[in-house]
Design a protein around this nucleic acid. Structure first.
Lengths: 151, 151
DNA sequence: TAATATTGTTAGGTAAAGCTAATTTTCAAG
DNA sequence: CTTGAAAATTAGCTTTACCTAACAATATTA
């Protein structure tokens, strides 16, 4: 068995963590709804996550995260945050799109590149200083608008 | 049959185009070498690419691209260029890494985000003007170095 | 040109991630 | 405390993308 976790399984894991926060227990049907798949596919995913030691799972019993699972989620959630920040504050996407896109990218962009995006965010924050006005981001926003105004 | 082309098939297609440019003919073994897989997997991929109408393929005959295949490659190659440019000139990665990473990302980042990266590149180019000196990129390079110097 | 080496394909297998349909467990009401 | 509905699981199938081993076609070269 390949021990690395695929993007699909990572997503399940995140939804599990989120549902746990909200509802305490994690139900197969809720997961299916969130993942946009059938309950049977969820069961299958839970079994594989369990084999990989990321969740505690027994048939018909409530699912919980292992320490390993929590660690995985912590990393993912950090990646998500950096990517969403980058998309919103560097590339000037609206927050909602940034969040959506970050959900995809957190499984697909290398840690190295994500880390570099974090450094770039720091760099730009430093350039903008405490001014608040006329930041690089707002300049870029204007730039985008100026492009759209002349089609 | 799902008519969309997966990331894996897209990669085969690109390697085919590249080999065609270099060697004229495209050999299964060369493709296998490039893709880091076995010859039998290549045959399988060629059959699927052919079913999707992206290449002309018959057993033991040289492979060629269809018009549709060429169009797909043109789009991909454009994405690759933008991503590599962004990685090298915004995120200040060395060219080789930028190229490698772009190969992965071109199949994974949404066209919308890639397009926005292109606009950002334009924006920064505009800011830097013709100066050449003290560009945003070179400032960021210095910033990275300054971070590394104090561990 | 015939023998051999290389290259390409087929057949059959695995794992991931989904599906439907059938079955089993749990739970809520009567 | 039984029973029927809802929820979860199992069984069996699909596709993608890989694998090995066996076989077929093409090339090389003696």
């Amino acid at each position: 068995m390949e021990n690395r976790v695929s993007g699909a399984l990572e997503s399940y894991l995140e939804q599990i963590a989120d549902l746990q926060k909200i509802h305490g227990a994690v139900r197969t049907s809720d997961l299916a709804e969130r993942m946009g798949c059938k309950r049977s596919s969820v069961t299958n995913a839970l079994q594989r996550l369990s084999e990989k030691g990321l969740i505690n799972y027994q048939s018909y019993r409530p699912v919980t995260l292992t320490a390993e699972g929590k660690k995985t989620i912590a990393a993912l959630s950090r990646y998500h945050g950096i990517l969403a920040d980058f998309l919103e504050n560097i590339l000037a996407f609206p927050e909602e799109f940034a969040q959506q896109e970050a959900c995809q990218l957190e499984h697909r962009v290398s840690p190295c590149t994500i880390e570099r995006m974090r450094v770039y965010l720091e760099f730009v924050a430093g350039k903008d200083g405490d001014s608040g006005q006329n930041t690089v981001t707002s300049q870029f926003n204007d730039f985008i608008k100026s492009k759209k105004e002349l089609p």
